[in-house]
Amino acid sequence: MSTHQSWAYSEKVKDHFVNPRNVLKDDEYKEDGRGIVGNIQCGDEMLVVIKVDPENGTIADCKWKTYGCASAIASTSAMSELVMGMPIDEAFGIGPKQIASALGQLPDNKIHCSVLGDKALRAAINDYYTRTGQPEKVIKEESRIICKCMNVTDHEIEEAILEGARTFLELQEKTKMSTACGKCKDDAETLLKVYMKKHFS
């Protein structure tokens, strides 16, 4: 009797988890851009390094390392294959949805683990632009404060939704937003719809 007939994730996730592609193993790797996001105190951390083909403006190589769960490992492995040879600006636009579909979907509660890879990739691309004297191309992910009392940004709200918040009450519990004056409730409800559509529709 095998207990592994049903793996908790899809077979593609399992394949990337068991044989992760493009793991950075070379300590002397000469990257053109480097991005690191998350931190181990929060439970996951991701490093992505890229080499760029300056002739074509494409990603010539993408390697990564992570302190993360199976979803983080598999999604970054899949992403590293996806962006190989891709024009930089296109790679910049890769999001969790494309990665998840390349993996044949992830459980909803694991989507948040898969966003680290593309976040780190964007950081690496920005780093490449900075190193090569093209700071005008750096695209900052601006965050906006939604709850002024508790100082909670739209990014934090998006993170909370990725981590499982589905209602205004759950957003309050996770972020402490709208627990003082309550004026941002309508904005929170709107953002909840926007981010649910972005990540889970």
């Binding site: 979803s71 683990c113 981590e163 499982g164």
Partner: peptide, 9 residues
């Protein structure tokens, strides 16, 4: 810990 339950706590 963490991710098994979908929470990072």
């Amino acid at each position: 810990s963490a991710c098994a339950s979908g929470s990072l706590d």
